[in-house]
């Protein structure tokens, strides 16, 4: 037994080594770096240098505000949309189910850069299809990328477009695990379809929905691609800068690794905290 284990570990060593060097070590290292002043050579240990700056940095609060704003609006809307999509996908009336399932899932597979480019184009002031549509129904066209509110909206729409189908597929799997006869029993109990949805489907889907919400929260906390590419590095004027973008700006443009590390740990800490609150709020009653 013992020699077997030893052999197993010998085989695992290459992987564990790579894992330690490229995964464990950066995590530890960035934690340590966050306590160092990295704008001076050599770096020196200064526990409050970055963290102190973080607490008083308006750019950080701006990024935090933007990230949380996207989080509280986009995630619930997307999950609600995903539930509706899943219910529709699960409908026995639906023809060509496989096609829809693929179509809903497809956005995840599209390259991030390509999809961002398309969204930029769609919302472009003079050539975008969205403004053309608005004008065709007699509305004013919107300058999406010059004002903060519409720019935020574009980001939320883009993220929702990309991930709603993915979540819908996960929720669909949950829906399909609810046995049909439970609904039949409810039908015999004279419970309307709508009430069945709220009193049976939703409660039974809760674990799946929580799972999707947690994934989405973690994803949105790290939001980077969309504000980087679609609203051009958090524009207009930092109005859509997220924590992920702030981290990138500090770390890789200003080469201030200490501060970037502190931001990174804040993001991770927040994601964990929000997830825990979420899990606690939706815990199974004993």
């Amino acid at each position: 037994m013992r020699t077997q284990n030893a052999t197993a570990y010998r085989f695992l060593t290459p992987y564990l080594l790579v894992f330690a060097i490229f995964w464990i070590w950066p995590i530890i290292s960035s934690f340590l770096i966050s306590f160092q002043a990295t704008r001076t050579v050599p770096w020196r240990f200064a526990p409050t240098f970055n963290w102190g700056r973080l607490v008083g940095d308006p750019a950080f609060y701006n990024a935090l505000k933007n990230t949380l704003l996207i989080l509280v609006i986009q995630v619930p809307v997307m999950i609600a949309l995903a539930i509706v999509m899943a219910v529709l996908l699960n409908s026995p009336l639906l023809k060509a189910r496989g096609l829809y399932r693929f179509a809903f899932f497809a956005p995840v597979v599209v390259g991030e850069v390509a999809y961002s480019a398309v969204f930029r184009l769609m919302f472009s002031l003079d050539f975008g299809i969205i403004n053309k549509l608005l004008e065709s129904v007699g509305l004013e066209k919107i300058d999406w990328f010059s004002n903060v509110t519409p720019a935020m909206a574009v980001i939320m729409i883009a993220v929702t477009w990309r991930w709603a189908g993915y979540n819908a597929i996960i929720i669909l799997a949950g829906l399909q695990s609810i046995p049909e006869d439970v609904y039949e029993a409810a039908t015999l109990d004279r419970v309307s379809k709508l009430k069945q949805f709220f009193y049976i489907t939703l409660p039974l889907l809760k674990p799946v929905i929580v799972f999707c919400a947690v994934l989405s929260i973690i994803g949105t906390m790290q939001l980077f691609t969309e504000p980087f590419l679609i609203t051009e590095r958090g524009g207009p004027g930092g109005g859509t800068e997220t924590l992920g973008l702030l981290l990138y700006r500090q770390g890789f443009r200003s080469l201030n690794f200490g501060y970037a590390s502190a931001v990174a740990y804040t993001m991770a800490g927040l994601a964990i905290a929000i997830t825990l609150v979420q899990l606690w709020l939706t815990r199974e009653p004993k």
Binding site: P179, V182, A185, R190, V191, P203
Partner: peptide, 23 residues
Amino acid sequence: FQSYALYPHMTVEQNLSFGLRMN
């Protein structure tokens, strides 16, 4: 039903009263 078809997230009491409460 053969598979009982109980509402899994409700207590026995809620299972029994669900239909009446909903109506």
